[in-house]
Design a protein around this nucleic acid. Structure first.
Lengths: 335, 335
DNA sequence: TAGTTTGATGTAAACGATTGCTTACTTAGG
DNA sequence: CCTAAGTAAGCAATCGTTTACATCAAACTA
């Protein structure tokens, strides 16, 4: 059933080289023979074997993307941004989810490398600093997105956000509004977005001369369930927080879910501030939540552009840091 | 930088055949030599080239999945279900989004075939009945999920839902509750889930001896924007519908978004019934919306099982039809 | 007219692995 | 001591393409 270039060559009465030339529109072929080859292709329903082609060309036209959570719309929007850029140049995307599991991440990177993808995009769960730079060194460009490795490690290309500054502003906003008991739903501290956001929060407190109270910090692990548990935890306090500060979109959704379930109204009964916006929050009565609005699609596009540069062998180091904006839904006051 | 099996063979002072045997743990190799080969592999940081391997073995250990909308959580849950099953047998998933575009879908199927995936999972945008069965006939198992082709076409394996029956019940529930003006947000009629759901609705009306009024049917194209537009449309009527019936999760979200924006409260001001549940609806005050609750993860698992059977050359036809349940959030009355 | 360019095709060597076959050495049984 | 089985390793063909090189005819060039 599966016909090869040889079958086509035989059918058309030419050599495989000629068929190849027709298929790839490379070199010279007379119209006469071109016709015969096309006929044979149609007749045999021939589809070139991309595996063999890749082997010969040492190019798969495929870019691998490894993300920690395939069901997080944030990463899907990044992916969409990447795809929209790279497909213009004939590349395709294949992706895998590490499920925030460092071991799995390392396995997946290895797999991508073995499959000889032309480049890799990684939002790391912090499991593969070495593997990533080894692969990069082996000539397969690796671009980090959203999450970076720590400073001292070898610099890979990256598209990230200024997590510290953004969270600083978000926290400052709450403090300015007079909130003194803020329940923090913390993320994974071993990934850059996790510790960056925590640091921004710390800085803001310090600036206001306030002490950090670990009691008001709950580890939500960047999961929806973490957000739910955090609410359960905070609402048990005698001194309940007047605001909840959540460090990613998924946890924020968990927070809102649990608050709603318990009959709390946002922001009337309790204020919610989130790093990362969530579409679902629009179902709350206005003004809803306060959030740092990210631009995943645009980040993805930047990643795509960097990829194309690398794939065209441009040298240098490509780093971009987005500065996401704070959106409060406050009625703008006349100033 | 990229080392091949030859480099390893040279380094270890053996033939490539021996290295291959060590790597794949096939055939006999003395412990002595095994050791030397492992050392060489480590030293050269050798990773087998999966492309070359696939060419030789005629197997990629990869399954392609083509879905209409990569950012719809429903399809992501299906994918997760598939992945969890197939990865046990060493298969990996690569996916692509057709964006509901039939032409793109056909291109993607072709691409997958050229990349010689071992099998394909397809949630069709109705663009590739023939290509799909050609590929299936060429020996690459194709399994349909969620959306089927029409009846008369060659039967491919499939995992779908009883769209007609479920929508019939959903509609019947609204009618039983006394709703006589129901705004329908219709899906894409050229895909099976689209017409199936519409048919279920029609049947219910007929059963109640009611006329279909096309004025109350809005084409939402299975998009969020469609849901928003539908609300704008219906709320212009002098005789506003007392209930809105939406035929998929994404449109339902659009409906809720727009209703909330306009200050309508669900279900107090207007009842919303949805084919497909949406997590975000839990942010509405209880009881929220009425919905047909689907089981995408389980569907994915079934697809995975079918795939494994096919890949082990089991013969026959595998078809499964899920019967999703109606969930009303009604306080159960004493009967 | 001879020499050069250009076009059209074929030949055969890669690409990096796997594997059937061959050869050779051990060991054990009789 | 001979033979057969079992173990260990290498040779070389093969998978389906691409492509450098060779060939040859026709068309220019001077």
């Amino acid at each position: 059933m599966k016909n090869t270039i040889k079958d086509v060559a035989l059918e058309a009465g030419v050599s495989t080289a000629t068929v190849s030339r027709v298929v790839n529109q490379s070199g010279f072929v007379s119209d006469d023979i071109k016709e015969r080859v096309y006929l044979a292709i149609k007749k045999l329903n021939y589809q070139p074997n991309a595996i063999a082609r890749s082997l010969k060309r040492d190019k798969t036209n495929t870019i691998g993307i490894v993300i920690p959570d395939i069901s997080n719309p944030f990463y899907m929007k990044i992916s969409k941004g990447i795809e929209d850029i790279i497909q213009q140049e004939g590349y395709n995307l294949i992706f895998c989810s590490s499920d925030e599991n460092p071991q799995k991440e390392e396995k997946l990177l290895q797999l991508m490398y073995e499959k000889r993808v032309d480049a890799i995009v990684l939002a790391t769960a912090d499991g593969s600093k070495e593997m990533a730079s080894r692969i990069n060194q082996a000539g397969v460009p690796v671009v980090l997105v959203d999450r970076d490795f720590d400073i001292e490690s070898q610099k890979l290309d990256s598209v990230t956000e200024d997590n510290v500054q953004s969270t600083y502003e978000l926290t400052k906003y709450l403090l300015d509004k007079g909130h003194r008991y803020i329940g923090v739903v913390n993320g994974l501290l071993h990934v850059s977005t996790g510790w960056g956001r925590y640091e921004g929060y710390s800085k803001a407190l310090k600036k206001y001369g306030m002490e950090e109270d670990t009691k008001y910090i709950f580890n939500g692990s960047f999961t929806q369930d973490g957000g739910i548990k955090a609410v359960d935890y905070f609402l048990n306090f005698a001194q309940k927080p007047s605001a909840i500060l959540s460090f990613n979109n998924i946890m924020t959704f968990g927070v809102l879910l649990e608050l709603t379930r318990r009959g709390y109204s946002v922001p009337k009964d309790i204020v919610v501030a989130s790093y990362g916006d969530i579409e679902a929050a629009q179902l709350l009565k206005s003004p809803g939540i306060i959030s740092i609005v990210q631009k995943p699609y645009e980040m993805g596009q930047r990643v795509g552009e960097i990829l194309l540069k690398r794939l065209n062998n441009e040298r240098g180091s490509f780093t971009e840091i987005f500065k996401p904006k704070l959106v409060t839904h406050e009625k703008s006051s006349i100033s």
